[in-house]
Design a protein around this nucleic acid. Structure first.
Length: 887
RNA sequence: UGGCUCGUAGCUCAGUUGGUUAGAGCGCUACCUUGACAUGGUAGAGGUCGCAGAUUCGAGUUCUGUCGAGCCAACCA
């Protein structure tokens, strides 16, 4: 709808009357996205001498699910980047995709209903359609279709295919929300460059002797069938039960242990109790016999046992938990592995040296009932047998207890003895903490999370995973003449040959025909923990070991934005890596964003079904409004999802647009700022500029937004704009009138320009649009304009802010009187008697013409009263003129 | 059990190094369609700052204790 107001006219080729009544978001967003892309507005200039501001952008896990949490934290980072860009920095702001790893594999498996099977032959050109496009999940489930087995190579191809599609969705969202990312710096953690850097990291750590490979008890997820790291564990409260099982002591006597894992009875390797426990200390040094399986095990004392817990005496198994591992090491107990990699109880040979049963046949018959079962099924079965044979002293006592899970898994982790690669970290805890302390944490208290975690670290970093879609561990092993693999001397590739895939590439000095043959070699099939690669994001961006000049320029980076739940993984590993590789910190600042909670203040998660999808809110409120909501949140503070805040953001954007239209339609005029009210306003604005700068420098952009917004409404649109309208309306001819008008127009334009710039990092679309109506001669894009600073006000006489305060207070008190009298604000006032302190009157007088004009007051009678506070006005009497004519 | 964070108006949150009468927005109520904007404007009601002590001339702000919420870890036989 075209605007017909007489205020609007054509200025500098812009027909303000033709502009829409309000900002049309979807249209403007699309146009500007296109323009920024074409003009390369956010391009990093590698050969530019300006100081760099490098952002270590989190590569999002490409899992196809986008939620408001993404928008929230990425927008906060973008705001920082935009501020630094306007500060004249050469901003390095890449985007990566974390597309490998378990979440991706799981999604690909479900999406195509496939499974990776190492022995399956490769099928060239295989391109499966997504199964869920032809049937619903329910139909799929009811049909019980078997998953199709794919070769490793075919499986990886499908992973690439799906992640590529998912990345497009992310990119679309990022563009819509207005991230000022340089898309020419796009990368994926599985691409050749990332694989190369990750493998270089491996070689470097290997040469520094910080890597080792060992066959040892390892945390194992039975669903994914891979080793996992301590950092990837989480506790979950699940129901369980204490089972009281009676053991006989050799040479007489008996006792009852309490266990939550009776299915591990065949894996029992010892019994322990507290050395001072009067009930049991007589048994220490003797041996006990496990019921059902008749295996003789030693009884030993240990300070670690809590006499209060259970029955005060317990069985040590292979392996119930990490304490079992400790006892196994200390007491040099035998190994009785009964749980297989698939989480099922594997076949055992009772009577062998490993399972020396007193009665192998009986043991085997008991075990037959649980062999091949999952842990859960086996538990149920063995409880029945124990009960039938009278070994269960009491009915199982249900409890609720915390059990360790792999954070992405569905069953508790087991501890299995497997061969894995580790990075030595436990011996460097203090040094890692020291490096962490050299980084500035925002908010500061997040450092204690990092410190706390590092202090409690007890296991080295297991970096090998028995998965498929990941970065290969770049080693081969020699196979000797007897066909035995020699793990002790891994064959490493040359740096120049990276990246390599040991499953298809051949080590130097061998030929492909020797693969897997005696006297030949075998490639490592394991891949890296995804954190091994993503802990290198700064190095991926800086091209560490590949381009030294670029690395020097970008590393350490300036800021790492991330959320707090991955301090123990991403932040921790990144700090450790930078320290191990170069004795450096990876970034100067780390900024921790809070979580988005649902309106009931619960954490949003897919399983709870309370996830809000971002696109609907972007469409409903506009990108700037959503950004406003994100920009208002302080770092490290969780924020409830609240569309109400977005509405306010939209209101601010609209107001900026309309105020911009009004100011710019005045055109630029000759002259300077001379009127006291205008100088007073600019003096206040100057302070606002200083505050905004300080807030950003302190990493508190929310503060800048909040304060500027308040100032914008109260001092600009609601007051100053209204106060000077009288001087801008209509055709002016008298020199004094022209001068007064010019003063207002100059101050209005400087004010608008300053507000646009301060809001630009938060509201990039609205500000760019309004900027294009009047300030493009200063800078094509507002996002390259210089951030406001005190020097912008040089050459303008410093006004007395008191004039502005007095004018605002007087205007307010007259408005108030009109409201109380229930007359319109436009009602003329023939005469008003105002009471105020003499000093307030003195401050007011220079602005009296503007206030009288804005409030339609024809005459003021002053009453001096020293008892009133500063800027306190009282209406003693008021006489209204007739209501203005309505047209 | 330990570490960290939070507790201010019905709701969402500000409140800088202690300093007049504790602020904003939303919501609510009343009024006003004035020439950038009704996706607007003007005003009003609404709070013993979780609780109890201590320091101080003075505490929402500092200290101690306590209650409640959340997070991270330890324990988890």
């Amino acid at each position: 709808m075209a605007n017909t107001c007489k205020t609007f006219k054509k200025v500098d080729g812009i027909d303000f009357a033709a502009l829409p009544k309000n900002l049309e978001f979807p249209k403007v967003e699309a146009v500007l996205q296109e323009r920024w892309g074409v003009e390369g507005t956010y391009r990093f200039q590698e050969n530019d001498p300006r100081p760099v501001f490098a952002v270590d952008t989190p590569p999002p896990t490409v899992s196809g699910s986008l939620h408001v949490g993404h928008i929230f934290s990425y927008t906060q980072t973008d705001i920082l980047a935009r501020y630094q860009r306007m500060k004249g920095k050469n901003v390095f702001y890449p985007m990566g995709w974390d597309d490998n790893g378990l979440p991706t594999e799981r999604r690909v498996q479900n999406f195509f209903h496939i499974r990776c099977e190492a022995n399956e032959p490769y099928v060239a050109g295989l391109d499966l359609p997504p199964i869920l496009s032809t049937m619903t999940e329910k139909e799929l489930e009811s049909k019980k279709l078997p998953q199709r087995n794919l070769s490793r190579k075919n499986f990886i191809e499908h992973c690439h295919k799906l992640t590529h599609e998912d990345e497009k969705l992310f990119k679309k969202l990022w563009s819509h929300i207005g991230l000022s990312v340089d898309w020419s710096l796009e990368y994926a953690t599985i691409d050749d460059h990332s694989r190369k850097i990750a493998q270089l990291s491996f070689l470097d750590l290997h040469s520094k002797k910080e890597l080792y490979q060992v066959e040892a008890p390892t945390l194992w997820d039975t669903d994914f069938q891979t080793a996992v790291a301590q950092a990837e564990l989480e506790d979950r409260e699940i129901p369980g039960a204490f089972h009281d099982i009676e053991f006989q002591v050799e040479g007489g006597g008996s006792f009852t242990i309490a266990t939550t894992r009776p299915e591990l009875l065949p894996a029992c390797v010892g019994i322990t109790t507290h050395p001072t426990d009067e009930r049991y200390k007589k048994f220490i040094g003797k041996r006990a016999v496990s019921p059902l399986f008749g295996i003789s095990v030693p009884i030993f004392g240990s300070e670690l046992v809590n006499p209060e817990k259970g029955t005060g005496i317990l069985m040590v198994c292979t392996f119930g938990d990490q304490t079992d591992v400790q006892w196994w090491r200390e007491q040099k107990l035998p190994l009785r592995q009964i749980i297989g990699r698939d989480g099922r109880l594997q076949a055992l040979n009772f009577g062998s040296s490993q399972f020396p049963s007193g009665n192998p046949e009986v043991a085997a018959s008991h075990y037959q009932a649980i062999a091949g079962k999952t842990v859960k099924q086996a538990q149920k079965a063995i409880v029945e047998i124990l009960q039938a044979n009278g070994f269960l002293k009491n009915p199982p006592k249900p409890i609720q207890h915390a059990v360790k899970f792999y954070e992405k898994g569905d069953r508790p982790v087991e501890i299995l003895t497997t061969r894995q690669w580790f990075v030595r970290l436990v011996d460097k805890k203090e040094k890692i903490i020291e490096y962490g302390s050299k980084i500035q944490w925002h908010p500061e208290f997040m450092y204690s999370r990092f410190k706390n975690w590092t202090e409690n670290l007890s296991i080295d970093w297991c970096i090998s995973r028995q998965r498929f879609f990941g970065v290969s561990i770049p080693v081969w092993y020699a196979v000797d003449q007897n066909g035995v693999i020699d793990h002790t001397r891994p064959i490493l590739p040359a740096k120049e040959s990276l990246p390599v895939d040991p499953m298809s590439d051949v080590p130097a000095g061998y030929t492909e025909s020797q693969r897997g043959k005696p006297g030949g070699f075998i490639g490592e099939s394991d891949v890296f923990d995804t954190w091994f690669t993503s802990s290198l994001t700064p190095q991926l961006g800086s091209h560490w070991e590949v381009n030294p000049a670029r690395h020097r320029k970008l590393f350490p980076m300036d800021v790492r934005p991330q959320s707090h739940e991955i301090i123990r993984t991403w932040a921790f590993y990144t700090i450790a890596k930078a320290m191990l590789h170069e004795e450096k910190i990876p970034w100067k600042h780390i900024v921790i964003s809070g979580w988005v909670l649902d309106p009931d203040r619960k954490k949003m998660s897919k399983s709870k079904g309370n996830v809000v999808t971002p696109s609907q809110f972007l469409e409903e409120h506009g990108a700037d409004a959503v950004r406003y909501w994100a920009g208002l949140a302080r770092y490290g503070v969780d924020t409830a999802f609240d569309p109400g805040i977005m509405k306010i953001g939209r209101r601010l954007a609209m107001k900026l647009f309309n105020a911009g239209k009004f100011v710019l339609s005045q055109g630029a005029v000759e002259g300077g700022v001379s009127e006291p009210l205008d100088l007073a306003f600019l003096a206040k604005l100057r302070k606002q500029v200083l505050d905004a700068n300080r807030a950003f420098e302190d990493f508190e952009p929310a503060q800048a937004l909040m304060e500027t917004e308040r100032f914008f409404w109260s001092h600009f649109t609601d007051s100053y704009l209204e106060l000077v309208k009288g001087r801008t309306w209509g055709e002016k001819t008298a020199p004094e009138e022209l001068r007064a008008k010019a003063s207002a127009v100059h101050a209005l334009r400087l004010g608008l320009k300053t507000f646009l710039k301060i809001f630009a990092p938060f509201l990039p679309y609205t500000t760019e649009e309004v900027w294009s109506y009047g300030f493009q001669n200063e800078s094509k894009s507002i996002h390259h304009a210089s951030y406001p600073e005190a020097a912008d006000f040089d050459g303008i006489p410093v006004g007395d802010p008191g004039v502005f305060d007095a004018a605002m207070a007087a205007q307010s008190v007259i408005n108030q009187q009109k409201t109380v009298s229930k007359v319109s604000i436009a009602r003329p006032v023939v005469k008003v008697a105002l009471k105020a302190h003499p000093k307030t009157i003195e401050a007011f007088l220079p602005a009296s013409r503007d206030v009288m004009s804005a409030s339609k007051v024809e005459h003021i009678d002053w009453i001096r009263d020293e008892a009133l506070a500063a800027n306190e006005f009282r209406v003693e009497s008021i006489e209204y003129g007739p209501e203005p004519l309505k047209s």
